[in-house]
Nucleic acid binder design. Sequence first.
DNA 1: TCCCGGCATGTAAGCGCTTACATTTGGATT
DNA 2: AATCCAAATGTAAGCGCTTACATGCCGGGA
Lengths: 354, 354
Amino acid sequence: MAIAEKPNIQGLERRRRTGPTIQDVARAAGVSTATVSRCLNEPDLVIEATRERVFKAVDDLGYAPNFSAKTLAANKSGTIGAIIPTMENAIFARGLQAFQEELGEFGYTLLVASSAYRQDLEAQQIRNLVARGVDALMLIGYDRDPDIYAFLAKRGLPFVNAWTYNRDMDASSVGFDNRAAMRGLAEKVLGFGHSRIGVISAHRTHNDRARERLEGIQQALSAAGLGPSRLSVLDVNYSIESGAMAFRTLMEHADSPTAVMCGNDVLAVGAVDMARQMGLTVPDDVSITGFDDIELAQISTPRLTTVHVPHREMGKRAAEILIGMLGGQHSGPSTLLKTRIMLRETLGPARASA
Amino acid sequence: MAIAEKPNIQGLERRRRTGPTIQDVARAAGVSTATVSRCLNEPDLVIEATRERVFKAVDDLGYAPNFSAKTLAANKSGTIGAIIPTMENAIFARGLQAFQEELGEFGYTLLVASSAYRQDLEAQQIRNLVARGVDALMLIGYDRDPDIYAFLAKRGLPFVNAWTYNRDMDASSVGFDNRAAMRGLAEKVLGFGHSRIGVISAHRTHNDRARERLEGIQQALSAAGLGPSRLSVLDVNYSIESGAMAFRTLMEHADSPTAVMCGNDVLAVGAVDMARQMGLTVPDDVSITGFDDIELAQISTPRLTTVHVPHREMGKRAAEILIGMLGGQHSGPSTLLKTRIMLRETLGPARASA
DNA sequence: TCCCGGCATGTAAGCGCTTACATTTGGATT
DNA sequence: AATCCAAATGTAAGCGCTTACATGCCGGGA
């Protein structure tokens, strides 16, 4: 959420009163506006006595600097933007939290917008945040219109692609190898004797993570000598409900899978729920896996077998990279984080073939 | 998330390049900046031919207006702020989504910040958003420092208190009666024969909603002729984990409750999970209830008995109220929304007394 | 005593926009 | 043809801040 649509202000009612300005403070303290500004931003440059007078005036008047004016004049905002695909699910919450905490350490502020998994909206939000003067940007994944990258480059705006790892781009990324991680999980699944696999994936257009995760599964299958016919893939929206519906579709098919691998935990939880509604026991009748290891995975009944992603570390690293770039470093190298397979209760041996 | 800490920009590196300005566009199109501005904001005032030239220049240059400059000059931002206690849980997600959608209809943009359930941080975020030029504010609950209300009043800044209903304040609120809703649920619980009730509540200092919900339970008990000794209350942080811990504490007590009422669904899900870990069957051994009816409640095993809150409608109404106030109306009356008790699986008859 | 340098502060020029007001233009009206 | 009015556009004054540069001040070294 945060920040939406075009910033078309036309026709909106005008605010009347504004608070005291730096002028008012300067007058009250008997100094120039420059001194007030210095007190606020570089107190060391001002002698103690003056500083006290100024701060007193600030307090008395309840002065708070106008952010727009400040950003406009200084050509920097102390704000860093992040655009995530959704706020509806907790996937990004933990990582973002860590990101924010780290930024805070360096005096930066975070602004979050969501793109609803739509590339056009993401582009719009990027422009929106840039227009708002963010000093840098954290984006999710790397799959976006070249125009956007060109735009960012032209403005010299530092950014980092998170939740992904890509050594081939010149943009720095911080994340994990979605393909390898999912392949690892798929190998475990195959190790349990499953050979008909259903996949519930998030939509893959404009979503490198979803795409790579599926590729990981495909690789594992083909390495095990299983043909693509063993795989049924369903692309769905990102919600518990969608996971449930897709699971039903998969299971009602004549040649139903013995294991259903989901692109993320939210879908998997929906699948687990539907299994129960259908009277299927997990994992005896069917195995289900997720991806992300969010809180949901652990309170699901039975507990979800999934891939653990180091969200907090990813957020922290993203912040470090950006701050480094703001400090003048060229786009640092990409950072690869490790994932871990969490074998819990929803994955078990394949049921005997029908 | 979004927006954090003090906006202390001092010492941060300066951005270099900026995009084309309105001047550049004016020059390219052979018109004045005023005309460009009009094209962008009030196209009807500009004759077709000119408009086309201007838009062509805009496209060619990739011009995007500088938001800070715009806000500064126009003294309005087309942005509305919301400060919610947390983004970690989905409690506010749905309502906020509806809020945003409605705002979008009117050309407004949403900015979200989180207060981490801390009154001081909330105050800071309010000032922060105001400094950023938001035209109005949505806040959660009504319980905050009078200074904040004074500040808002002095700036003439429209705001609405959501997720709560309070006819006594002169601020407008949109929400439901937390006390009555929880009292209704408590009556159901008592109706099932429970007489030793545990309560897992969010911290109640600076949280009117948590406080009122507990009061609702107390009222129901006393109306049923049960003394306060029948109630054990635990205040905890807002997380699944905390709910689980609190539940254990409650149940390990000698005189353990037969029903545990939780201040929200997240805590309740934690409690349900812990019950299972402790080998207790819900609701046979112990009943558990939640509040909010978020998605989690329905996929919990067993499904959570809880209070349904009309989140989407609340968000929508909040937007309408704010837009009305921006249109000049004085703070409208408060809006009371209805809640509904969702009797699902976690509430059952009290177990026979030990 | 004079001069220099560094510190504390002031001056004022913008930052990129909006908008009140002034000016121009081209009919329509007489 | 002269007049008037509305529509289209231009002019320029800010909005509230930062910051390069100028100024004034004071103490110490020559």
